[in-house]
Amino acid sequence: MSEYRVTGLSTSVIAELVAEVEPLWHEQHQASLTARQRRRAVGAGAKHRFVFADRLLATLVSLRHGTTHDVLACWFGVDRSTVTRAIGEVRPLLAQRGCTVAPDVRLRTLAEVVEYLGGDGRAGIIDGTEIRVRRRAAGRKDRDKFVSGKTRQNAVKTMVLTSADGRVLFCSPVRPGSCADITQARHLGLSQLLADGPFTEILADAGYQGMGAQTGGRVVTPPHRKFKKNAPDWYEQRHELQRKAHSSRRIRVEHGIAHLKNRRALARHHGRREHMSDIVQAVSGLLSHQQAATLDTAMRT
């Protein structure tokens, strides 16, 4: 179960996760026990057969392959409800970890990412990506709210911010698929953070046009067309070269999104939409942790 092909993580990263998350889970579990009225003392009664390491592995396999809880219950020899409860407890703890950029540096908020990029004059790349979800039942309020204007499918949207080399630095909480990319960035306060924070260049696609003027040129989007009709040949060639140069610089964010979508939980989600923000942030944190560990190993060798 701890194979890289099963979890998407190396054994060293899994060991670090166990050491970091297990105390948090035990603290959370003890708090839930003491919060309610009890007839027996805390710790009395049957002990867990489903230990924390197995709970973590079940969560990692679920995020990596989208394995059903019934199958995981058969693998671990427990009831399906036990697996569902375990994943529901461990997944938020993974989502709270943030994205790892170095063994001692972790980014949890968009403000920390902007400060990290501006501190050393690094460039960042942003883009929005959609994750298909189940359609809401007929008669529910705002049933069409999750329909994407681009794909015409029910989806939720998250904003991904990567470094210039494609390493994932931040994934935002999800919003309904009808939300525009630039609207989501504004709701996250990106314009204000860039305008008030240290200077850093953020590459974006045409969906973010207009943010450059709001941030003093910090958000760089593809060049506008000055000639809509009867453009001279020299202008067409120059405009195409400029667009290709911009696309070549920001292609790394597409690679980062592809690595995220390799996790089946983000390819298409069949469960509750309420869990999508935790799933996105948990996957981005795990991916960045593995990327940082791989880079650290490469530098040592």
Rank of each mutant, 00 (worst) to 15 (best):
T215K: 14
T215A: 11
T215G: 12
G216Q: 07
G217Y: 06
G217D: 04
G217M: 13
R218Y: 08
R218N: 11
V219I: 07
V219F: 06
V219T: 06
V219G: 07
V220N: 06
V220Y: 06
T221A: 10
T221S: 12
T221C: 15
P222I: 04
P222K: 04
P222Y: 01
H224A: 14
H224Y: 14
H224I: 12
R225K: 15
K226R: 15
F227V: 00
F227T: 02
K228W: 15
K228V: 11
K229F: 04
K229R: 15
A231E: 15
A231S: 14
P232T: 11
P232N: 12
D233N: 11
D233R: 15
D233Y: 10
W234N: 04
W234M: 06
W234A: 12
W234R: 12
Y235H: 12
Q237P: 02
H239D: 14
H239S: 08
H239P: 05
E240C: 00
E240A: 10
L241Y: 12
Q242P: 05
Q242T: 02
Q242V: 00
R243F: 02
K244A: 10
K244Q: 08
A245K: 13
A245G: 07
A245H: 12
H246P: 12
H246R: 13
H246T: 08
S247V: 00
S248F: 00
R249L: 07
R249M: 03
R249V: 03
R249P: 00
R250D: 05
R250Y: 01
R252I: 02
V253R: 05
V253N: 05
V253F: 00
E254M: 02
H255V: 02
H255S: 02
G256S: 08
G256T: 05
G256F: 03
G256N: 05
I257Y: 08
I257Q: 10
H259L: 10
H259F: 01
L260V: 04
L260E: 07
L260S: 05
N262D: 09
N262I: 00
R263P: 05
R263Q: 08
R263A: 04
R263E: 06
R264C: 07
R264Y: 07
A265K: 13
A265V: 08
L266W: 10
L266Q: 09
R268W: 02
R268Q: 13
H269Q: 08
H269P: 09
H270M: 08
G271E: 06
G271N: 11
G271M: 03
G271C: 04
R272F: 14
R272T: 15
R273A: 14
R273V: 15
R273K: 09
R273N: 04
E274H: 13
H275L: 13
H275G: 12
M276T: 11
M276K: 03
S277L: 08
D278N: 15
D278G: 13
I279Q: 12
V280Y: 06
V280R: 07
V280N: 15
Q281L: 03
V283W: 03
G285D: 06
L287M: 03
L287C: 06
S288D: 13
S288Y: 09
S288V: 09
H289T: 14
H289I: 09
H289N: 09
H289S: 14
Q291K: 01
Q291N: 04
A292E: 13
T294L: 03
T294R: 04
L295R: 02
L295G: 00
L295C: 01
D296S: 10
D296E: 09
D296W: 03
T297A: 10
A298Y: 01
